[in-house]
Write a protein that binds this DNA or RNA. Structure first.
Lengths: 204, 204
DNA sequence: CAGTAACTGTACACATTCATACGGCTTTAC
DNA sequence: GTAAAGCCGTATGAATGTGTACAGTTACTG
């Protein structure tokens, strides 16, 4: 009983923390401000998380777990690999350019110790990349692509898909893309990707 | 006489500011810390720059001017466009993944007002992108590439070249690349780029 | 060489954060 | 129903940053 409620409260506080951070930056997201916004006591925050860094570390972990779940679900869908790749593309755009990931990347950029950045990479890219590589293997075996290597294909895919969009989101010069823009961009990316890696080299 | 000296001192202070920021993060780079490190008075810093944000805005501007100069120089070199593209690729990797640009992007990520990010984009991407587009036009006219559009070619080039490398630098999970790594990566990128945009579609 | 302007170093008031502590209230457990 | 635990709100003290002020020194200028 109580455990569930506490989990819910924790999720609530973490959501509020991100919201505060979104509005006032990482500096402005002090434990006190977060506590006030969440209608919690700062003492509770300190007891639960220890300090600000560990609070955000916790958020990074939750976020990574959620993202991985969504990704695995998309990967396991009973569809041809090419369709899965399209879904993955859209999903990654949505996740990586969404408010949550952007806020966490901002926090990591502000954290001089580099711990947040490390956790973000560990829970994010390092977990995701192998899955993409594996998917590329499936695509290759299905004869959809013929890349120099699965790793190279995964790298190209991510670069063409995300490129510098995430950094532009992080420094605040790019608004969050709409669903329509995401679909459009995923489509364009896939066309380029297949033109780069495809077995069919007719181009255009 | 004095004007020169002052310019030199300003450049010195700005360099120190970046150095402090590199070591202690944007938060840790207080006006006081910068003043101490630069053996200057904080009063001078406040008189010259007004506040921390404008100090960093000034640094962004200087950096952008320097980068643009280097870029223009490379673009005007008496070489075939394909060679110029390679030089530009290496130059951009060096500039964008170097300590200075990374520190400034970190600062922009920490700046909740978004002004630093705006200035960074204005002095950086918005100035550079049109130049790349123009270069793509030259490459197209020289028959080296046959892209759907010059803009698309420029976008692909940048995405394949920079990708998520800059963000990974900013969150501290990627070390600064060596000269050798830069050359290697530029080469790989160009191969992919030509395979994507080239008139010659034999692939591999 | 004298006068003036600017810079350094230090000090200051004010605000804010961090981390801890405590009284009062609600909720859980027995 | 009563005891205990946990959380809220507020208070607290140490530390730090911001922006301003001022005395002493250095370095230009005429």
């Amino acid at each position: 009983m109580r455990a569930e409620k506490k989990d819910k409260r924790r999720a609530e506080i973490e959501a509020v923390a991100l919201e505060v951070m979104r509005e006032r930056g990482y500096e402005g997201a002090s434990m006190l401000n977060i506590a006030k916004a969440a209608k919690a006591s700062n003492e509770t925050l300190y007891r639960w998380y220890g300090d600000k860094q560990r609070l955000f570390l916790e958020i990074v972990k939750s976020n990574a777990a959620e993202a991985e779940e969504a990704l695995d679900k998309a990967l396991k869908a009973p569809l041809p690999p090419a369709d899965i790749l399209e879904q993955i593309g859209k999903l990654m755009l949505r996740l990586l350019l969404g408010e949550r990931a952007v806020a966490l990347n901002r926090a990591a950029a502000c954290d001089a110790s580099g711990q947040l950045g490390g956790a973000l990479a560990k829970g994010g890219r390092e977990r995701v990349f192998p899955k993409i590589v594996k998917l590329m293997g499936a695509l290759r075996e299905a004869g959809v692509i013929a890349p120099p290597s699965d790793e190279q294909a995964a790298t190209w895919f991510i670069q063409l898909l995300i490129g510098d969009l995430q950094l532009r989101r992080v420094i605040g010069t790019l608004p969050e893309p709409t669903r329509g823009q995401i679909n459009q961009h995923a489509k364009t990316t896939l066309a380029a990707f297949y033109s780069l890696c495809g077995t069919d080299q007719t181009g255009v």
